[in-house]
Design a protein around this nucleic acid. Structure first.
Length: 422
RNA sequence: GGAGAGAUGGCCGAGUAGGUCGAAGGCGCUCGCCUGCUAAGCGAGUAUACUGGGAAACCGGUAUCGAGGGUUCGAAUCCCUCUCUCUCCGCCA
């Protein structure tokens, strides 16, 4: 969430930057709401100060019959305070809800644009392999090899659920281990394994709630939400905490399944593993000093890219434009892997910096100096990588004319030495 | 699921016949003094949020003793609801 003080003092600038996302106006009426609240707050606190003062006087008098008038007066004052408290609570909630539904300001380095066509390619790695035959999409490869069973997945649960079998299941597990080992062993992340269900506060802390409840799977009683990404529990690890400056940046790598309703994506990517209600992901999360967050985003993106390089999968890195970045993000790089079976690049990782947007919601802070006031940290996260989509890329890039799939060398130790799925 | 105990400041821990308690004391930490180093000792300071004033240093107000509500002129203290933690039983991977 944005800083109300900042909005108050830079209303036009904030509105302008928000509108680069498209849509708006975003901040209409917030100024009036804020002023109304502060005026009432001042009145209310003045009355409370008077009550406190008179109550202290009453306390000093032994014979309460001498202060009956004051007690009477304060009874009325208390009544008034109570009414104001009620009104104030309404205003607070209204303002809070307003602030919680305003997206983050795009970072100045985020290219301005209306939609994904305005995203900017930053770099690419590897070159798409030339096929001497017609490359197949992964769902055909997987079904033929008997390692992806879409029909039974649908039987067990419904559309967008898949049963992995044999070498497919093994590869999914291998990829998780491979990625975690790389990030913890080479890139300095601490491995964490969080709960896969979280409460409302955690979902609000990272920005999924209150605005995107429809995108989440929810347990009714008790009210828990299935995480749409490990970003949620992992970022909330430090919710409400004041971190030590010398501990920054804190880096976590977490595997988790992710659960998404995919509301609004009906008809898109209906075949294959690309868009599932449940998928696996290894997530990278950082808590950084504000002065380091830009560099930490660059490093985190490179950490994610390393996975693709080791797996020999061609990709490109796109800087998302202002119209395409997510609600909480200030800046985002998408890593897109080449899928020859579909002749296109598909997102396999999304790496974002959030500035203090999440940290303010979740109250995650640090002190610049021992005695200075706490300031908000910056949060950064990205997929390192989406596991299912990595498996898709391996199947499509590694397919052979005879229908078998060559497993990248780096992954073979995790597959019991298996070189080829046949 | 059943029974019981608990939740106070960075930590430990007082405080329950309601008022002078943002909260004793200790530890830790910061600054200063002292000491030939270290340790000890002495003195001062040491929460957060919102908010008013101020260029700032800073000064003032309000709130916060798990959360929410109630009683009262006044609640850490009394009443109600909820959450979480711990112990025991049950159940289970």
């Amino acid at each position: 969430m944005l800083d109300m003080k900042f909005i108050r003092e830079n209303l036009d600038e904030a509105e302008r930057r928000l509108q680069s996302r498209g849509g708006g106006p975003y901040l209409d009426g917030i100024k009036e709401l804020d002023e109304k609240r502060r005026n009432l707050l001042y009145e209310n606190e003045t009355l409370k100060a008077e009550r406190n003062r008179v109550s202290d006087e009453i306390a000093k008098v032994k014979d309460k019959s001498l202060v009956q008038q004051q007690i009477q007066d304060m009874r009325a004052v208390s009544q008034r305070i109570k009414e104001q408290d009620e009104e104030l609570k309404q205003l607070d909630e209204e303002l809070q809800l307003f602030l919680l539904t305003v997206p983050n300001l795009p970072d100045p380095s985020t290219p301005v644009g209306a939609s994904e066509v305005d995203n900017v390619e930053v770099r690419s790695w590897g070159s798409p392999r030339q096929f001497s035959f017609a490359a197949k999409p992964h769902w055909e490869i997987g079904e033929t090899l008997g390692i992806l069973d879409f029909e039974r997945g649908a039987k067990l649960t419904g559309a967008r659920f898949t049963l992995y079998r044999g070498a497919g299941a093994r590869m999914e597990r291998a990829l998780i281990s491979f990625m975690l080992d790389l990030h913890t062993g080479q890139h300095g992340y601490e491995e964490v394994l969080p709960p896969f269900m979280v409460n409302r506060e955690s979902m609000t802390g990272t920005g999924q709630l209150p605005k995107f409840e429809d995108d989440l799977f929810k347990i009714a009683d008790p009210e828990y939400f299935l995480i749409p990404t490990a970003e949620v529990p992992v970022t909330n690890i430090h919710r409400g905490e004041i971190l030590k400056k010398i501990d920054l940046p804190i880096r976590y790598a977490a595997y988790s399944p992710c659960f998404r309703r995919e509301a609004g994506s009906y008809g898109k990517d209906t075949r294959g593993l690309i868009r599932q209600h449940q998928f696996n992901k290894v997530e990278l999360v950082k808590f950084a000093h504000p002065s380091e967050s830009a560099a930490e985003l660059e490093k985190l993106t490179l950490d994610a890219e390393k996975v693709l390089q080791l797996l020999e999968l061609p990709y490109r890195v796109m800087a998302l434009c202002s119209g395409d970045i997510g609600f909480s993000a200030a800046k985002t790089y998408d890593i897109e892997v080449w899928l020859p079976g579909q002749s296109c690049y598909r997102e396999i990782s999304s790496c974002s910096s959030f500035g203090d947007f999440q940290a303010r919601r979740a109250s995650i802070r640090f002190r610049e100096e021992e005695k200075s006031k706490p300031e908000f940290v910056h949060t950064i996260n990205g997929s390192g990588l989406a596991v299912g989509r990595t498996l898709v890329a391996i199947l499509e890039n590694g397919q052979q004319e005879d229908g078998t799939v060559v497993i990248p060398k780096a992954l073979r130790p995790y597959m019991g030495g298996l070189e080829r799925i046949r």
